[in-house]
């Protein structure tokens, strides 16, 4: 399509499974609306982009602590409410299956298929001690200026 497309940008700050799910459902919907969609992951939202398997990388003590204490990948994230020390996510995944909704890892996969641009905030990647190779493939690294460039042309801008 030659006419300029509408744009949707989402900042995913939260590392909660339910909030990330909402973000990715909106992203997939916007892609179906033929928008250019960007999800800018920062702070705890970066955990949604982590590979599930540990990646051998050189880290300092603090970085190792962070890596251990944060969920490795979308499927391991907790709920913002009723997490019940990890039982909540199990229950919600059961309900997701029952209602034939899509679990978060598949929503992320579909977003990639639909051409949603996944961006990791470089500064918080560094703060949390994450290495690029620990994140799933196809992620871009950028900062606030790149986000603002997208958002200032955005028709829908969300912070989740």
């Amino acid at each position: 399509m030659t006419q300029s497309k509408k744009k949707t940008t989402i900042i995913l700050f939260s590392g909660d499974y339910d909030k990330a799910m909402a973000a990715y459902i909106i992203a997939n919907g916007a892609a179906a609306y033929d928008h250019d969609v960007t999800i800018f992951h920062t702070f705890w939202g970066l955990n949604a982009l982590r590979k599930e398997a540990p990646v051998p990388v050189q880290k300092g003590f603090l970085e190792k602590m962070f890596a251990k204490m944060m969920p490795r990948g979308a499927d391991r994230m907790g709920l913002s409410r009723m997490n019940f020390a990890g039982i909540g996510p199990k229950l919600i995944k059961k309900v997701i299956k029952k209602h034939n909704a899509m679990p978060l890892p598949q929503l992320i996969e579909m977003a990639k298929e639909q051409g949603v641009k996944l961006v990791a905030c470089q500064m918080t990647v560094d703060l949390l001690g994450l290495k690029p190779e620990e994140l799933i493939d196809g992620v871009e690294f950028a900062g606030v200026a790149a986000y603002l460039a997208d958002a200032s042309e955005g028709n829908v801008n969300l912070f989740i």
Binding site: I25, N28, G29, A31, A32, Y33, D34, H99, N100, A101, M102, M110, Q114
Partner: peptide, 14 residues
């Protein structure tokens, strides 16, 4: 049929 949001719209677009 049987698909939940956002799948009907995503499939329709495809």
């Amino acid at each position: 049929k049987g698909l939940a949001c956002p799948m009907p719209v995503v499939r329709a677009k495809k």
